[in-house]
Amino acid sequence: MEILNALALLANFVVVPATAYGAQLALGALGVTLIFGILRFANFSHGELMSFGTMAVILFTWVLQGQGVIIHPLPTALLALPVGILVAIVLSLTTDRLVFRFYRRKRANPIIFAIVSVGVMFVYAGLVRIVIGPDDQSFADGARFIITAREFKELSGLAEGIAIKQTQVVTIAVAVAVVAAMFWFLQKTRSGKAMRAYSDNEDLALLSGIDPDRVVMIAWIITAALATIAGTLYSLDKIYKPFIFLQILLPIFAATIVGGIGQPVGAILGGFVVAYSEVMLTYAYKKFLAYLGPSGWAPDSLVQLLSTDYKFAVSFIILVVVLLVRPTGIIRGKVIG
């Protein structure tokens, strides 16, 4: 019983939140890795693209809520998601046409692309703050919990409950669906294979008659969709804060590199590695150990390896370890000079 309680505790505070967070990071990292694979640069504007798409979702959610269009118990934001994705796609394609295409034609150095993406980041960040403001926004509705801790305790007879938030289940369900759709696209469709071919060998793709502009366009469309979904799920799960999207860039980049740059499977693995490390290293194991130890005993301290203040440091540590031990990432990614 004690062991079951300990496991329930761990499930409630580590497994469930880390899985949801991992899915959000994985979706973000997929977008970054896709742009890395196709356009070959580190896209610093990705976080703000997530923010922009999410903002569009929030605005449309408010409109729907105002009209009384809701899909209880699911969050209304799911209904608004396609609109947000569309906005993000239009934004991405416009940006590509106005900004990135010029450097692509010039075959500019990846680092120039990265700096240009900083400029794009500024513009997106400014637009978001002008339109929706710099403050937190809440837009989650629908049922809050699938199962509350109390219900779980009554059901299982354990002293520890596992609460599962509705947003966590939505996150995981949507992430699984999106990832499955994306892999189906990449593995089975002609356009998807063309994207992989282009990412693998640009020159040969040209010789095969694959249109680079089309490949890039599809890459942006998918990236914008992934970014909007990732940002919306993250904001539903926690809260929408415009400034968080610059911070979240770090774990997303870490997940991308850990998984292997340009590797979609790696990005997903990387997302979960980073999320689980973050949650596990910042969780206080006091109660968990108390269950496992002799009855009546409890550790004196919190048994927390790192204060939660340092959760972003975890991604960095993982990043450094990967750079030192296996610079190509879990799945051997490409090394673009």
Partner: peptide, 21 residues
């Protein structure tokens, strides 16, 4: 010592990390 000598954009991401820390 850690990030130089690798890819150019690794330095960017590594420095982004160190500054957050």
């Amino acid at each position: 010592k850690v990030a130089l000598g690798l890819r150019a954009d690794y330095l960017a991401i590594a420095t982004l990390g160190i500054s957050e820390i």
